[in-house]
Amino acid sequence: MIRLEAIRREFQVGGEPVHALNGVSLTVERGEYLSIMGPSGSGKSTLLHIIGLLDRPTAGRYWLAGRNVTGLSDQERALIRREKIGFVFQLFHLVPRLTAAQNIELPLTLDGLPPEKRTDRVQSILAAYGLAARARHLPNQLSGGERQRVAIARAAVTRPEILLADEPTGNLDRASGREVIELLERLNHEGLTLILVTHDPELGSRARCRLQMRDGCLLADGEAR
């Protein structure tokens, strides 16, 4: 599904090059549940952004579903994001002026789906995620857990193959965090490839496959401790 080969990513910070990723190679199978753990600044978010085609590696190669996506244009990458990848962020990133239902609808709208189809898909996912009563609420009228569930619904409504979650529980209390993680795991059971970035070892240890990052390098699970 995902194959990274010697991926490097450098940033220029104040004229000094910073190596966020230092030659990362990684293979993720379809339907995998992978967690990437590590302290902040270890490059785990950068790795997630590169997998999600939001960021380009400085060097290295990347195959997604058998296709080399390393050198694709902005437009082609956008298309792949739209069709294959869902994102869940720590800060939810809901559009504040849109209702829960409209937020979930947004990727379908960007896709150019006809309105009737969009409404159907949004209604069914709202019902499935227990958000039907919240459909017309604005994000600031929702609790943190509800916001993250709306964000997950938005990521899942396009039926992507890969779900990338960056500290999805980082801004939630334990109870809502548990709900959110269970929802993500349910999607993984349904066949979605789930990649979870977290610095919480308890959360990370729930994944079938666990990776540790340190200074832009991947370590196998256990090695870090």
Binding site: L54, A78, L79, R82, F87, L106, D111, R154
Partner: peptide, 16 residues
């Protein structure tokens, strides 16, 4: 900015 970032993450190209 964050909304624009989100739109890009959701698959909106720069042109769009």
């Amino acid at each position: 900015r964050q909304e624009i970032g989100l739109l890009k993450a959701l698959g909106a190209s720069g042109g769009k």
